[in-house]
């Protein structure tokens, strides 16, 4: 079986790496290429870049930094943010990214997933899914999460949307559980377990990682990878130490 994937997420806004808490109050972390190189050197298995202002601003990702990242790192990476057409995805992949991740534009235009999968193959198409549990305990989708003032409940249930996206050609799903993002209380295991059982593509956990145990929990409920930002940016968890811990828990890790 593949190694448990550890995936630092670099939220990008205005050309620098940032991190917010519960999608608000972004603070600057640093340079995109330097951070990408550092995580690759430290043993990250993959990187994800979210241009978190892109969808909300109605523009797309700048491909110059994508090419700079592609030049220096030798591990796979995906790019998300405002990719709403085959042409924009082609620009990002053509700059050297391995996958594109679509979120809000796919909700607005589900056929986009089909077009991307037809053009590039489903292994290049990731669905980013921002999900929260409502007062009735139902998993629901949110959109346009780069800007607090523009975030909205889109009126879809998470599992239904995930299944539709996979049927349309999404080859992987990053589930970002919004109740937990940036507060380091652990991944939303209930949501993750439900999604892993519902789809037969890889699921990546996102939102809430604070300790090595949280990563192990995500893999225990069936996730193929675990994504985190603040614990890595703040150097609260070193990737090497995290892999030592997961190895001790009996998980396969890449060295």
């Amino acid at each position: 079986m593949p190694a448990a994937r550890i995936i630092p997420c670099l939220d990008v806004a205005n050309g620098v790496v940032v991190k917010g808490v519960q999608f608000r109050d972004h603070r600057v972390i640093g340079d995109i290429v330097e951070n990408a190189q550092r995580y690759a050197d430290e043993g990250a298995d993959e990187l994800v870049f979210y241009d978190i202002t892109a969808s909300a601003d109605g523009r797309s990702v700048d491909v110059d930094w994508v090419h700079k990242v592609a030049r220096v790192i030798d591990i796979p990476f995906s790019v998300a943010g405002g990719i709403d057409s085959v042409d924009k995805a082609a620009a990002v992949l053509g700059a050297g990214a391995d996958k594109v991740s679509v979120n809000s534009p796919a909700l607005a235009d589900p056929e986009l997933i089909t077009r991307l999968a037809d053009a590039f193959g489903r292994q290049c198409v990731v669905l980013g899914l921002d999900s929260f549990t409502d007062e009735q305990g139902v998993l629901r989708v949110k959109a346009l999460t780069g800007r607090p003032d523009k975030t909205m409940d889109v009126g879809r249930e998470t599992i239904d949307w995930a299944r539709e996206a996979v049927a349309r050609g999404a080859g992987e799903i990053v589930l970002n559980a919004m109740n937990n993002d940036g507060v380091r209380q652990g991944y939303d295991l209930v949501q993750l377990e439900a999604l892993c059982a519902a789809v037969d593509v890889p699921v990546i956990a996102s939102g809430g990682a604070g300790t090595p145990e949280h990563f192990a929990q995500a893999f225990a409920v069936g996730c193929s990878g675990a994504l985190a930002a603040s614990v890595f940016h703040d150097q609260r968890i070193a990737i090497g130490d995290l892999k030592d811990y997961l190895d001790q828990q009996g998980l396969e890790v890449r060295r």
Partner: peptide, 15 residues
Amino acid sequence: EPAPGRPVPHMGWTR
């Protein structure tokens, strides 16, 4: 072919 615990695409680092 996918199976429980073995999603497809095969994505990631394998020995």
